[in-house]
């Protein structure tokens, strides 16, 4: 029983940072129609912001994490300007360009920090007990930050004019443009938020995962599974799928092993695709 509860707590932690990554990916897809293959590398970049600012230059952890959000958000703006805007009418080209960008980011980090794991000492060693399960403060921080950020995002999307514009673009770009909504402006906002969320997810989890320049690969695989299961383009679907996936993956990892868990995760995704080719919460037709 204890092990079950502990595993559930671990799954909650996994679900929280995975949702941040998946929601960012979905936002970028929703507004620009591009699957950003470099999203895992944006996560990696966020982690390396903490490696650099916190572990090497001794800035406070939270400041380094915030810097990760802003910096990776700016990288996102650069991607929008350099690749996704010129390739707006051609989603496949956008995806392929993002694969190219992924290789560039990886190499730059290898050149700057080397191939080996960056070690990040955890800012706190403290932990608390939740009904018998151990939860380190670092993990708790990730969970709380994810909930706050997702709530803020939700408020932004539903309550502000920018948020309305963004949702309008995601639903029907042409109609939104006819209402005087600037496609470019909206794409910028979506890209900054989407990339920034991946960045802060990487920054906050950096002390827990020992980042390498190649960590983005497993992240993007996971994120793909989540957005497919949730239905590409659905933010709520992404969060629900992240929770679902995190629980399945964490439990299978605990009771079998990590590789089996990955196989189960991928099989889960294929199964969802067979039953509902547009995901659990996806729109009827968008391909």
């Amino acid at each position: 029983m204890d092990l079950l509860w502990q595993t559930a707590v671990n799954a909650m932690y996994a679900a929280s940072y995975m949702s941040l990554i998946a929601v960012g990916l979905v936002m970028i897809f929703g507004v620009m129609g591009v699957i950003n293959f470099a999203h895992g590398e944006l996560y990696m970049l966020g982690a390396y912001c903490v490696v650099f600012l916190y572990a090497q230059e001794n800035f406070p952890f939270l400041l380094a994490a915030a810097a990760g959000l802003v910096f990776v958000g700016l990288v996102g703006l650069f991607m929008e300007r350099a690749m996704f805007r010129p390739l707006r009418d051609n989603p496949l080209s956008g995806l392929i360009a993002s694969i190219g960008f992924l290789l560039i980011l990886q190499t730059l980090v290898v050149l700057g920090f080397g191939r080996r794991m960056g070690h990040v000492p955890p800012p706190t060693q403290e932990k608390l007990e939740v009904f018998g399960a151990v939860l380190t403060h670092q993990r708790l921080l990730v969970i709380v930050a994810a909930i706050l950020l997702l709530a803020a995002l939700w408020a932004f999307l539903k309550r502000t004019r920018f948020g309305w514009a963004l949702r309008a673009c995601a639903q029907d770009a042409e109609a939104a443009a006819l209402q005087g909504i600037s496609m470019t402006q909206t794409a910028r906002i979506a890209m900054f938020i989407g990339a920034g969320l991946a960045g802060i997810a990487g920054a906050l989890t950096a002390p827990l995962v020992s980042p390498t320049p190649y960590i983005g690969h497993s992240v993007i695989v996971t994120a793909f599974i989540i957005i497919i299961v949730g239905g590409i383009g659905s933010l709520e679907g992404a969060v629900i799928a992240a929770v679902l996936y995190a629980f399945v993956h964490t439990f299978v990892t605990t009771f079998f092993d990590g590789v089996i868990a990955n196989i189960v995760g991928l099989a889960l995704m294929l199964a969802v695709l067979v039953v509902r080719p547009t995901g659990l919460f996806g729109a009827k037709e968008r391909a």
């Binding site: 360009a97 694969i99 960008f101 290789l103 560039i104 190499t107 730059l108």
Partner: peptide
């Protein structure tokens, strides 16, 4: 070391 970078740039 920079080969992936150059491949990426060529691709883009």
């Amino acid at each position: 070391t920079v080969r992936p970078l150059i491949y990426g740039a060529i691709l883009i």
